[in-house]
Amino acid sequence: MARISILNKFYNAGPLILLYYLCISEVDTNLEKIFEIFTLNFQIILIYFWILKRPEIMANGHIFLAGLINDVVMGFPLGISSLSYLIMIFVGTYVRAKSVNTTIASDWFTFFIAMIFSNLLFFSLLNNFSELSFTLSKIGYNMFFTLFTFPIFWLLFNIYQMTFVGNRDA
């Protein structure tokens, strides 16, 4: 019984561990070595999905901390990734509060809106308050691939949820 409980805790912590690991390790989802323009922001997909489906396993404080770590590793001004992640949480929580039944299509559409707000804030702060320069094409590719890989990860996370975490949706 105790073993099952430990396993459940581990499975529940899985998405959070993955988020921390992606932020702190060298593992990245910028696959430019494979295809020059293929970059995606996996962290926001991860956050958005779990905030929609099981917000209790993605605590806001942890996401905030993961954002700070991401800023240090990436060399961005501190707090900018946290802000971007918090916008994803905000939109996700709002959508969750307003919707009864969610489908992959509705999640995909609301993810697009959340990503627009989140990236708008991220890049406007980066553009106005830091010396880093970036091209619009890079941002465009990043958003495009993040958006179009969302359904794939939605399905994978859904399988994980069904298999290991359990569905507690209304």
């Binding site: 917000p55 209790e56 605590a59 806001n60 946290s82 905000f90 939109v91 929580t93 709002y94 702060l125």
Partner: peptide
């Protein structure tokens, strides 16, 4: 509710964390 909700696993509200992130930034 999305901005201020706390309780359960959520020890901090989104709004307070947004202010904190802005301050750090």
């Amino acid at each position: 509710s999305a901005l201020l909700q706390r309780g359960g696993a959520q020890k901090f509200s989104v709004l307070s964390l947004i202010f904190l992130a802005l301050l750090i930034f």
